[in-house]
Structure formats: structure tokens, C-alpha cells
Amino acid sequence: MSHTGLSSVVESRRLNAALAATILLFLAVAAVFQVLIGDLEWAGFTLAVLAVALVPPFARRRPTAMLPWEVIFLAALPIVLRALVAGETVAGMTLSGRIVTYVAVAAVALLIAVELDVFTSVKMSHRFAVVFVVVTTMAAAGIWAVVRWLSDIILGTRFLYDGRPEHVIEEAMMWDFVAATFAGVFAGVLFEYYFRRRARLARRIPGSAPAGYPDSGRGESPAPGPTGEPDSEPASVDAEVSDR
């Protein structure tokens, strides 16, 4: 496993935390502006990224316990682009805007996967984490569509039925689904590669080791037996850190 100069630099917890904190500060400012200009859908996403990213430092009560800044950056990318690049703020997004958005959703899914692995009794191998990311990204597009639709027909909001003809609304939604599918698979491949290059995302959260996450080495460990009896071992490994 070859470590480039850059990766050894960001393995430093303090630098990682500083970079992540910079992104989160930007997100906090962006969220305020989004609320002020009434862009509530995006404000919701921004706040969700913030909340997910702030779980480890609060759970560990240590500001350096931060998730990898590069994954947080990926999650924040559409917000950064919308804030900095003019034209991206138009409601009719381009396909590239959609792809960036759903890659960001995939990044959030990865952050959640790492947190579930570190802070709960859920344990994922890196392969399962990749499947989880792809599934969650695609499901998110479906849930988001249904939630907006239900809100429109029950509460009378105008998320989808905003005056456009119905077939235009539907086609836009279908392109959302297409983007979510491609972005989910793309992110899955990207993360698979990322895990292989430099695994152990959770190493930057103190107390999450000894095995770290996701551990390619664990996959090769001998199976408990030919009958495949349930394993009781992983629960005890981080018994002290699983604060539910």
C-alpha cells in the first residue's frame, strides 16, 4: 500500500480537524444565507451535512475527533458550487449539478456508515459500506421525491407542483433518479478505490480503533467455522466506545 505525501499529511488528526472545521464554518455561514434568501430545501441539506459531521467531535468531546475532511468536502461541494458559481443557483439545474448533488448525498451516506460503525453496534466491512452507500444514495432520491410529493398533496406546499406542466415535473424527477443512480454507482466505485488506497477512515476519531474502519485485513480472517456460527467478538472489541 503506497502512501503518497499528501495522504500522510492528512493522516494528521489536527490538520484534518482544521480543514474539516473550515468547511463546516463555511457551511454554517451558507446555511444562514440560504435561510435568509428562503432556499429552505438547500438549507435543510446544509444543516444535515453539518449535523452529521459534528457527531464525532461532540460524541468524543474532542474537537480533533473529526471525520475525513475530503469526504466532508465532497458532501459540501454542491453547496460550495451554488454559493460561488453563478448560474448554479437557478432552479433548473443541469445534469452536472444533479450529479454533484447526488455524489454529495453519497458522501453523507459514507459519513453515516462510518459513524454507525464507530458509535453503534452496527459493524460494516468496507464492501458492505460500499453497497450501503449506493443503496442509500438511490433510496434518498426516492424518499426525497415522495416526501415532496406527499407534502404538496397533503399540506399544499409547492415543492413539485410549482406551476410547471406535470410531464415536465415528472421528467425532471426522472433525471434526478438517473443522476442518483449514476452518482451512487460512481461514488461506490470511488469509495472502493479510496478504501483500498488508504483505508481506516475512522482512525481520525480517537478511541475508534484498534481495528479501525474499514479494515481490509478483517475480511481475510478465518471464518469461525464451517457452520458459520454467529460472531460475538466484534461487540466486545469496542464495548467501551459504543455509546448509544
Binding site: L116, T120, S121, V122, K123, M124, S125, F128, F132, V134, V135, T136, T137, M138, A139, A141, G142, I143, F177, A180, T181, G184, P214, D215, R218, G219, S221, A223, P224, G228, P230, D231, E233, P234, A235
Partner: peptide, 27 residues
């Protein structure tokens, strides 16, 4: 059950099935 490195408690399993089906619905 099989894998040492995967442990999915029932509550996660429940949520994951919903996500899995919704992802398939989107596909």
C-alpha cells in the same frame, strides 16, 4: 451471520431493507 466484520442489528436491518427496496424502486 457469516461475516466476522459485518454485524447488522435488527433495527438497522429493518431500515436497510426499506432503503434497499426504495433504491430498487428508483432503479
Amino acid at each position: 451471520i457469516h461475516s466476522d466484520s459485518v454485524s447488522l442489528p435488527p433495527r438497522f436491518q429493518f431500515v436497510f431493507i426499506l432503503l434497499f427496496v426504495l433504491a430498487f424502486g428508483v432503479l
